[in-house]
Design a protein around this nucleic acid. Sequence first.
DNA 1: AATCAATTTTAAAACGCTTTGGATCCCAAT
DNA 2: ATTGGGATCCAAAGCGTTTTAAAATTGATT
Lengths: 340, 340
Amino acid sequence: MNLKQLSIQLGLSQTTVSRALNNYPEVNEHTRQRVKLAASKHNYRPNARATRLATGRAMTIGHVIPMNSSEVFNPIFGEFIAGASQAYSRRGYELLLNMAKEDAEESIYREIASKGSVDGIIVHAPRVNDSRITLLQELGLPFVIHGRDSSNSSEYSWIDMNNRQAFYQATKLLIDLGHTKICLINGDEKLNFAVRRKKGYLDALEDEKISANADLMYSGDLTEANGYTAATHALKHRNAPTAFLVASYVGALGVRRAIHNAGLEMGSDISVIIHDDELAYFHNDGDIAQFTATRSSVKDAGERAAMMLLDIIDDPGKAPLNELLKAPLTLGASTGPVKK
Amino acid sequence: MNLKQLSIQLGLSQTTVSRALNNYPEVNEHTRQRVKLAASKHNYRPNARATRLATGRAMTIGHVIPMNSSEVFNPIFGEFIAGASQAYSRRGYELLLNMAKEDAEESIYREIASKGSVDGIIVHAPRVNDSRITLLQELGLPFVIHGRDSSNSSEYSWIDMNNRQAFYQATKLLIDLGHTKICLINGDEKLNFAVRRKKGYLDALEDEKISANADLMYSGDLTEANGYTAATHALKHRNAPTAFLVASYVGALGVRRAIHNAGLEMGSDISVIIHDDELAYFHNDGDIAQFTATRSSVKDAGERAAMMLLDIIDDPGKAPLNELLKAPLTLGASTGPVKK
DNA sequence: AATCAATTTTAAAACGCTTTGGATCCCAAT
DNA sequence: ATTGGGATCCAAAGCGTTTTAAAATTGATT
């Protein structure tokens, strides 16, 4: 059943039927009811392909998530997208998922911009000196970045958490507890968020006149296995750390395993602070949270990013918009004073 | 730049330009080259909204993933989708992600079917007696299910792993190692896969004349926290298990934590077998895998499911197609003979 | 030079909506 | 009776492609 058939059925023009369904004012209330009734009776729904051509809007947002060589799908993306999806469904949008291999990235973005299957995109995992930002500005496609690129001083819309501040505060707490050998297990430092976190860590050490030690800093995809390997390696160091600062819950699970394997007890022998994205499958709470953590819900970030983008699409004059989320440090069972 | 402008530029009709770009045979090779050159020079790409209306194909596949009340995004979905996405990009398709709250499910599927923004869908997480299958058959939208519904005897396309067989074999190994008190930490038994796994577990117990004990069976979302809670609870039982059979890696991380907290050693004091979906962020390998596991790559399943659906869309006569993936049992460090 | 077939190109219809620019109807005001 | 103006409805254009049906061109054959 399409609009034409429905309008014939009703003895009305397509115009009137279309207007009735779209709640335009210039149609008699009685006819509107009649039309709506018939539409739902015949299970009519406007063909999205036609609507999109006619209106020039795709009513779809693209999420482009970079796939590096190891082709890893980070659970954080899933959670962010679940949040965004809530905002979209509230406002009648759909979500197009695009996994871009890094080597073909530029052409993928160009294609997205010119073929018109989305009205805007959300960019994930910005890198340091990320060429995508300039590209997107040039292409004129509305976009919001989850994160920032500190090396790019131009104006663009983003939502981010206060990475530097969070890791500064976490490091400071560990130092206050007497730790001086603090091992940083960080995300991939090609990515901007990881750089900001590292800066927070280093700034805190410097403020407290503790010299940083390159042997106590790891960077890489935050998988369980990588967390384990890094922590195991660190614990074997002649000058082993008494505390870990870990950039994700998942990575921390590996760290926890390494600590146990070394015969140590988390919270007493060794302190751990993590950043907790509040993933649904990895809840860090209970009476006392397992891990002391800086917290910021990535699902919430997804929802807010989506709303921001939709606002920009509705009123492009609004851009650029920015939002900085807090990541408060909350105490759990994994920290304690350094053991003498 | 649109087709009309481009064709004027070239002094050709839209027809010819369109045909040249789409590699139709009835256009002179010289003109084709000329057209393609001009197209790429002007960065022309056909407007997807128009193409979709004209061809009647959305060139898009929908993935509908159910969101239950707790609104949890299972990392397994992400991995499956990453696999599917590879197949789509090879064949020029896009991926539309749809998170359906369970209460509105029927209307969501109806809407998807009638509005035409996808050519087919992949259905995730089939339940026992899942009403979606009949609904989709009725709606006539091509679909493939990741999993099956054993209670539905009609014909439909699916891809699944051999859940019963995998858990039968795993249970059998534990029994062969002397374990009789084996605790099952299963997925949500509203879901079909969990029911099949339980059946495998129960069948093996029965075949070996070991009586099942309801106190040693848990079912729920396989989060780290739930795995921990279930295992902790089981270990406190007066008749505590000597082995765990856990339906996911993530759940097993919680089980591992519970075992450590109880002061026990995995692999010697307590055996654990998991099902390993081979998630990128949770690699279970190395010289000796951490966990003894039944293995089946869910990313691979995603890719195969996608290919299957595209094949069906190209040739609807092919359906229904079915594919049963093996999940071989591979030995890791988490199993050993029962301690007397 | 005429004929025919194959090759190459084109004009126009179609896809199913929205939206523009009128048309028609009805009623109150002149 | 005429006019004016809302309220209500409609025919047709437009969105940017693909595809159908037909026209024009070419080249070989007689």
